[in-house]
Write a protein that binds this DNA or RNA. Structure first.
Lengths: 178, 178
DNA sequence: TGTACATCAGTGAACGCGCGTTCACTGATGTAC
DNA sequence: TGTACATCAGTGAACGCGCGTTCACTGATGTAC
C-alpha cells in the first residue's frame, strides 16, 4: 500500500484541509480522527504517520484556517468591505470555510497550550491585517470583536430564530455609524 | 436513602446551578453527568430522577445562566456601566459565573433544537434588557455582539498572550467612542 | 400522637457505545547494484 | 535500463478508556389508620 512521496504529501494536505473544515463545522469534539481521514480519502490507521495526535492536527488546522482568514482580509479594500462579507447570510451558513474565531472561539479557552498558541498567533496576524484597513489597532480590535460576536450569536440562534440571526448581522454590518 | 421533598427540591436546584457553572467553565462536552452530580453532593444514579437527559439539563442550565445575565444587566444603570464590568479582568477569569454567550456561544450552533431554543429565548430576553439601556435595539445588538466577541477572543488567548487579551477587552470597553 | 407499611430519592454496579491510539500486516515505491 | 530487495504509507482489527444511561437495591420519608 505504499504511495509515492508526492501522493503522501497530498494526503497530508488533504487531511489538514478536511480537518480544518470539519472542526469548524462540527467542533473539536464533534469530529473524530476516523471521520477526518475518511473525508481525506483514507482510513484512520494512516493518520499517525502524518500527525502525532489529534491535538497536533488541531493546532495545525487552526493555523491553516486563520491564515486563510487573514489572506481573505488582505484581499479586501478595507475592513469595512471585509465586514460586509463577514456579516453575511453566506458566511452564516458556511462555517466550514468561514472564520475560525467565530466557529471555534469559545472552545479555544479549553484547549491545550499548543492549540491555543496556534490560535493566538493566528489572531495576532489577523489583527495586524485588520489594522491596515481600519486605521488604528484599537478600531481593528473593536471591529473584529463585533464581527466575531455577531457571527457567534447569529449562528447560535440560526434555525430557531432566523429573524434574530439576521437582525444581529444587519446591526453589526452598519456598526461603525451607530 | 429517601430524602424529604424539600431536600429533593434543593438537590435539583443544586444540580442546575452546578451544571450551569461547570458547562460554562468546561464546555458542554467537557463535563459529565457524574461530575455535575458530584459537585451537587450526590452520585450520578440519582440524576435521572431530576432530569430526563444531559441534554435537557443543558437546556435548563442555559436558561438559568442567561436569566442571571439579564438580571445583572437590569441592575446596571445603563449598558455602558454593564459593559465596563463585562469587559473586565474579573469576568475574563470567571467564566463559570459569567456570560453564557461568551462561554458557550460557538458550541450552541451544534446543539440539539431544544437547547438552542432555550439559548435563543435567553438571548432575546437579554437583548430586550440591553435595549432599555442602549437607546435603540440596533445599538444594543451591536454593543452586545462586541462584548461577546471580545470576551471570546480574550479568553481564547488568555494564558498564551495575556497582553492581547487585555488589549481586546480595553478596546471594547471604549468602543462606542471609537 | 403512635405504628405499620407503601413510596420513592438516591446509590453504585453494569451496559453499550464511540473514540483516540497502537500494531501486525500488505504491497507498492524507492534504491543499490 | 533492468532486477532484487529494503523501505515504508496506508489498512483494519483490537485495546483501553470515558461517558450517558439503566436498574436492582436500600433505607428514610410520608401516610393511612
Amino acid at each position: 500500500m505504499r504511495v509515492t512521496r508526492e501522493r503522501r504529501a497530498e494526503n497530508r494536505q488533504r487531511i489538514l484541509a478536511e480537518a480544518s473544515r470539519l472542526f469548524r463545522e462540527k467542533g473539536v469534539q464533534g469530529v473524530g480522527v476516523a471521520e477526518i481521514t475518511q473525508a481525506a480519502g483514507m482510513t484512520h490507521g494512516g493518520f499517525y504517520g502524518h500527525f502525532a495526535s489529534k491535538e497536533i492536527l488541531l493546532a495545525e488546522a487552526i493555523a491553516y484556517a486563520l491564515t486563510g482568514a487573514a489572506e481573505q482580509l488582505a484581499v479586501a479594500a478595507d475592513i469595512e468591505e471585509y465586514a460586509q462579507g463577514y456579516a453575511s447570510e453566506r458566511h452564516l451558513q458556511t462555517p466550514g470555510s468561514g472564520c475560525p474565531m467565530a466557529a471555534l472561539g469559545s472552545e479555544m479557552s479549553r484547549q491545550p497550550t499548543e492549540v491555543r498558541e496556534a490560535f493566538a498567533r493566528g489572531v495576532r496576524e489577523f489583527i495586524v491585517a485588520a489594522t491596515a484597513g481600519a486605521g488604528t489597532r484599537e478600531a481593528a480590535l473593536t471591529r473584529v470583536s463585533g464581527l466575531v460576536g455577531a457571527m457567534v450569536l447569529a449562528r447560535a440562534v440560526k434555525g430557531v430564530d432566523d429573524d434574530l440571526a439576521a437582525e444581529v448581522l444587519s446591526a453589526i454590518r452598519t456598526a461603525p455609524r451607530s
